[in-house]
Design a protein around this nucleic acid. Sequence first.
DNA 1: GGCTGCGGTAAGCGCTAGCTTACGGTAAGC
DNA 2: GCTTACCGTAAGCTAGCGCTTACCGCAGCC
Lengths: 104, 104
Amino acid sequence: MAYADALTALADPTRRTVFETLREGPRSVGELARGLPVSRPAVSQHLRVLKRAGLVRERHVGTRNYYSVDGEGLVELRDYFERFWDEALAAFKNAAEREEGEDE
Amino acid sequence: MAYADALTALADPTRRTVFETLREGPRSVGELARGLPVSRPAVSQHLRVLKRAGLVRERHVGTRNYYSVDGEGLVELRDYFERFWDEALAAFKNAAEREEGEDE
DNA sequence: GGCTGCGGTAAGCGCTAGCTTACGGTAAGC
DNA sequence: GCTTACCGTAAGCTAGCGCTTACCGCAGCC
């Protein structure tokens, strides 16, 4: 059920911006906050949510805290959509076959 | 930017349940509401959000309103994550090459 | 040691999302 | 026509989310 956390995490626009910025490479909290219209603590809270969703990782360097993209959350999301797509297609196929059976 | 609507749409647990139920095949609003702990108008509102996100379609039959999965929204989401993944990989590769250059 | 810059956390606040009830509108059956 | 079942929308309420300010801890530097 971890894909649920990832979905709610990426639902917020600010969090999406943070995530998409991190895609370009690791960033410190301050660096991220400077490019955003919100305060640094707000960014900190967003990063916590993203981390809990398995979408980002953190690495301490001195007093700085560098965040980067974690592929695990992305993989879970991709798998979720893929499975969804497969089952939806299967159901569609079943329905089509049933309708064909009714016509006879 | 339609993937944003799809993400916020799928962030809500009730809406996810509705969407996953629809994966099994078309359902009327009443049928969906019966299997959920919320009222029928609530389901109606959720369906409106899902429709705006391009995730579901509706088809009127008499006084009933049948909803089914629309693949368009799913495709947009898949493309978004795919592009994200590609760019993240490219950035990672660039960073690795830069580090290699610094070592020399 | 003191100072500075870094960042996580707590407390509090406003606003929006999701829910409910109440209503109106339409199609089918008598 | 009347009634019934279906559904969408409006209005209103509440819980929670995202934000801010204030505070604290920690690492580096003088």
